[in-house]
Design a protein around this nucleic acid. Sequence first.
DNA 1: TTGTATGCGTTATCAT
DNA 2: ATGATAACGCATACAA
Lengths: 363, 363
Amino acid sequence: MRKNQSAPALSLAEHKAAILRENRRVTSYDVALVAGVSQSAVSRCFKPGASVSKATYARVMKAAAALDYIPNAAARSLITRRTNMVAVVISNTANLCYPEALSELSQQFGRRGKRVLLFTLQREGDIGAVLNDVWQYQVDGVVAAAAVTDELVAEFERRRVPLVVFNRCLRGQAVNTVACDPYEAGHMLAGKLALAGHRSVAIIDGPEDNIVSSERRRGAADKLAELGLSQPVVVRGHFDYASGARGLRDIISRLGHVPDAVICGSDVMAIGCLDYARHELGLSVPAQLSVAGFDAVEPSNWLSYNLTTLRQPLQKMAAAAAELLDRLIETGEGEVEKRMFSSQFIEGSTARLTALPSVSLAA
Amino acid sequence: MRKNQSAPALSLAEHKAAILRENRRVTSYDVALVAGVSQSAVSRCFKPGASVSKATYARVMKAAAALDYIPNAAARSLITRRTNMVAVVISNTANLCYPEALSELSQQFGRRGKRVLLFTLQREGDIGAVLNDVWQYQVDGVVAAAAVTDELVAEFERRRVPLVVFNRCLRGQAVNTVACDPYEAGHMLAGKLALAGHRSVAIIDGPEDNIVSSERRRGAADKLAELGLSQPVVVRGHFDYASGARGLRDIISRLGHVPDAVICGSDVMAIGCLDYARHELGLSVPAQLSVAGFDAVEPSNWLSYNLTTLRQPLQKMAAAAAELLDRLIETGEGEVEKRMFSSQFIEGSTARLTALPSVSLAA
DNA sequence: TTGTATGCGTTATCAT
DNA sequence: ATGATAACGCATACAA
């Protein structure tokens, strides 16, 4: 099988020279030759918990070190059917939480001996296209921080690739999920604002294809409806700072006046809205206008903002996603599991949360 | 070689059932069997620019689609010696630029048919440890956004793995580099501040092991020395918001008074410093204190800050890094190349940049 | 415990 | 243009 087995008693130096000359990689055969054992013995030495004698182990390791041998994960995966790679599919416009989530996922998987293969999306709708790449790489599992259609879920099942959908809860969809309920968050926030007497509430929504922001909007709108209040004006944003300013401008032009409160689909938009209100319109926040966001990204608690917002327990969520996917991979999955987290309300100081004396709470 | 070649005339449905039953993956052999061609023909159909007749191509593709066949990248890489994966090693504390750079790198490599395998570091010093993992995965190349010692550079050469060091320029080190000169940036910033008459200048440095911030500090300190000004007070920070506030506090306690200007090793620290000065100390910026940072991260140009800072052309840098690494991979490297970018000064409004009438410029 | 032999799924070489 | 066959580097069943 191997031509250079014709030289079984090569010295270490000769051997290294030969490898270099033939421009080969260092393989377990090379190590075996130098150590004077069989290739399978070498293989066993690199498999934790295999049965090898102390003596051979030592000789193999010495030879391996001398040759700079490292097992080839590609070859290994061919036979073990494990690549120890996990795909993370994420849209970079998602918003500021994206880096934090990604970093945490990377850490968590690292602890479990798996590495993250990154697939970034320009728009969430592109997910179908990148999945064709995902299959090729034979990843052990996928964390998708993007909306996954039912057809795509079916494809994951056909291919037997474990999937965890991150923070993109499609109600009623039978797929493993880790998420922070956006509907509930919107509902809660609208409730707090309504309770404080805000009547003219407007919403800056996120991108069209983003289910997180649209669920937040739905939750807020539903809560207002439940309370018998009028439906909010909704304008579209794109999760960025500029969208916050433009959103507020659009709202005012639609209403003809400044609203009581603006609910923004993300903190960055809330900050944009806030800055525009304060610095461009000269409004006093929260006296003349309440502004609130979602996510509790880092800048939201900077002294200049101290934003009223809802914190997603991103670290816990990432840990849960990693743990869940890891289990699916190791045990060959079982029931569909959904781990829902709740947002934590951060009071901040950009929204008035108590009723004004002069305002009657009865709608 | 294959047992189930004993049934050469299987129908499609039978075939799919057999694969499922035997719990095998769909391979090019399966497609060949269904399409009625040889396995090599199938392989060629998936290699762009191979010589296949229209007719066989069509039959193969039809069979492949029917079987949900996707080539196995691990098996392919075994023989082509290409994984089409690139490792990106990055420390997550690096600062806010990290997500932007990572996202851009991912996009750039994606366009070149390569995917990013992510290796995150807790501290930059951990790079040696993760590299042992990197070798296993047989990545085609590495982008390291961390300081790489000479020994590690040597190991890259021994293993013939192309390396591009990103934004971590070790002077005189013979390694491919894409970076924005931090020394020059510090030098420039200190010059501008000195020109405006700032005399008591302090610096909030970055983490101990971060060469970017220390070079910025060196550049600034050297410039002050060149101008015959007294050396700056230097305190340590960790690139985070809290470090900015703590840094300013430390500076004031060391000096016994508020300095004329604070140069912060990163924008986030500058923002922390700024907020602390304005909101906690009640200082007027830039009238009583000038604050400047580096990087021009997104929040730096928010209306509440409008920070005086230096922009790194991160997108161009990421594009350059991807292009350089790609070339090293494709052509089997050549000369060591260093692509240095310059920072662009962003005037902002947090530093006074013109001399006060009452201050003499002669030191 | 150790070695032999085989297969993982592909690409590449060489005839035809 | 197509098909047979030999690698690629490793893990594993089995025999010893």
